[in-house]
Simulated scan of single mutants.
Amino acid sequence: MKHLIRLLLCCLLLAPAICRANDGFGGLSATGLHFHKNASVRMLAEDLFLSPGQVRVRSVFRNEGAMDVQGEVIFPLPPISLAALTDSGFALSEQQLARENVVDFIASVNGQRIPVQSDRIAVREPHFEAQRPLSAGYDTPGEDVTAVLKELGIPLSLNVTEVAAMIARLPQPSKDRLRAGKLADFFDGEPPRPAWSIIVRYHWPQVFPAGREITIDHRYAPAPPGGIFSWPKQERDLDPYQRELIQTYCIDDTTRKGLVKRLHHASAGELAGTGTALFLDYVLTTANTWHGPIGTFRLTIDKGSPDNILSLCMDGIRKTGPTTFVVEKTNFTPTEDLRLLIVSRLAQ
């Protein structure tokens, strides 16, 4: 019951279209490792595993140049809006948000666990755009306002209650500065509302030796957004949001029939069937920061339960087990990011 109540909370971190159509909770999309664009280090292979509970990635790199390449490998989370956390539910609990390593990120190089640093910046995100690509949340997340908060003595915390209390104790000129910078909202009789977002970045220095291969593994617990999901029996009863989902997640005729079969029961009559959905995204185009295409690419998806319905836009998908699907490609240059829809029936 507690989980169902959580699902019924509407989170502003979801795209507004999602919140309008289905009550939901917010979460984080996932991305690969970032590295400065270079002309030497090639990704020979990538083995990607996606599930609602875990993301695992194994990447094999080769420096094809004559000299070692050294730089910072970065794994950023997308911006986490404090304004949204004020108003809504989230895929991560308050306890998880309070931790430095919010998604249990770990990495290893050539089979050896390595120390990973993390830092945070604060940004003021741009206005919502319905067609903004997933990768934009990483490439252009917004205006960096970290220095302003530091100057005012405000920590880069995800504890909204704590941050609001600190803002309330600031002298009036500091409050006016936050208001003028559109970094906080103030309402009579209510705590201040921080309006910035926090980006957590994991990173470590990495040397790519000339002419040699290295293997980097990383994994973490994803926090996909989701919520209550409904689907009508008849095609004519699809609403604009459901039609948008068909385009976004390539929900074909077979999958639509599966949704009707899975979500409807005898007592529902002609009413829309109801379940829950997770929207698991992965920003695959970050692989293009490496030199050339991915030599061999393997994607494994585990939808979690044999009864769940999975839909995504990618060709060459093979079912390999009751819950698993595999896609394999060679000389692969991603042109679009992965967006997975996983639908479950509500427990009766």
Rank of each mutant, 00 (worst) to 15 (best):
L341V: 03
P141T: 14
D239R: 02
I301T: 11
S88W: 03
R42F: 03
A180F: 08
A122D: 04
I317M: 14
E72L: 11
S59C: 11
L7M: 14
K303T: 13
R262T: 15
P240K: 03
N63V: 05
D237Y: 02
I251L: 13
W290P: 03
D188E: 14
M1A: 15
G189V: 10
D68R: 07
L13H: 08
R120T: 04
G142T: 09
E270N: 12
I301G: 08
S51A: 12
W204L: 15
L299K: 01
T161M: 08
N331M: 04
D47W: 09
P133F: 09
N101I: 06
F75W: 10
T254H: 14
A195Q: 12
L85V: 02
F35Y: 08
P173Q: 07
P293A: 14
H34M: 03
H127N: 05
I214W: 00
T146W: 14
V260K: 01
D307W: 07
A30C: 13
Q131H: 10
V326S: 10
R318I: 12
W196V: 01
L245T: 00
N159P: 04
D337R: 07
P232T: 12
R177H: 11
D104W: 05
E100R: 13
R236E: 05
F61R: 00
D104P: 02
P78Q: 08
F279W: 09
H218W: 15
V69L: 08
L338V: 14
I342P: 09
D104Q: 07
D104N: 10
I301H: 06
S51I: 07
T286Y: 05
A266M: 04
A17V: 04
I18R: 02
P155F: 13
I301E: 06
I167G: 00
I167F: 06
K319E: 14
W204Y: 12
T31K: 02
A84L: 03
L341N: 07
R345L: 10
P171N: 13
F49S: 10
R56M: 11
S88P: 02
Q96E: 15
V55D: 05
E94D: 05
S267T: 15
W204M: 14
